[in-house]
């Protein structure tokens, strides 16, 4: 089945990982398309692979969300070896007894749906390591 990453900074395949646009001048990293660096005004970026494991620096358990989003779910900020990543924490009961600040997690990928052309979209999350 054809697959498409949910966002363009997710690389699928045998070794799924995230990539960032890294400023060649100051090393600041961004996940979105950039014209310039917000840190140093640099204009050149290279593609940098982001560590696939990290530590939960902040989280919340969202119980009220937009229609169509299954709740509750855990939203978090993961410190991946110095690069902060926004993601859901998955494969764990979404409650404060099972998710903790400082918890070690690793990247995982999973399908979120198939479109009318039969292409499967794949998103990333982090699961307990």
């Amino acid at each position: 089945m054809a697959q498409v990453p949910f966002v363009d900074y997710l690389v699928l395949g045998d070794d799924p990982h995230l990539t960032a646009h890294e400023c060649t001048a100051c090393g600041a990293r961004y996940f979105d398309r950039r014209l310039a660096c917000a840190s140093c005004e640099g204009r050149e970026f290279r593609t940098a692979a982001v560590a696939t494991s990290g530590e939960v620096r902040a989280f919340t358990i969202v119980s009220l969300a937009a229609p169509g989003i299954p709740v509750p779910f855990v939203a978090a900020v993961i410190d991946c070896d110095g690069t902060s990543v926004r993601a859901n924490i998955v494969n764990v009961p979404p409650d404060a007894d099972h998710v903790a600040l400082g918890m070690k997690v690793r990247l995982t990928t999973f399908p979120v749906g198939t479109d009318s052309a039969g292409t499967e979209a794949v998103v990333f999350g982090f699961e307990p390591a």
Binding site: D8, A65, I69, F73, R86, A87
Partner: peptide, 12 residues
């Protein structure tokens, strides 16, 4: 972000 759908709820 080259996203195929809204990211709210899917990615944080």
């Amino acid at each position: 972000y080259g996203a195929v759908a809204p990211i709210d709820g899917r990615i944080g």
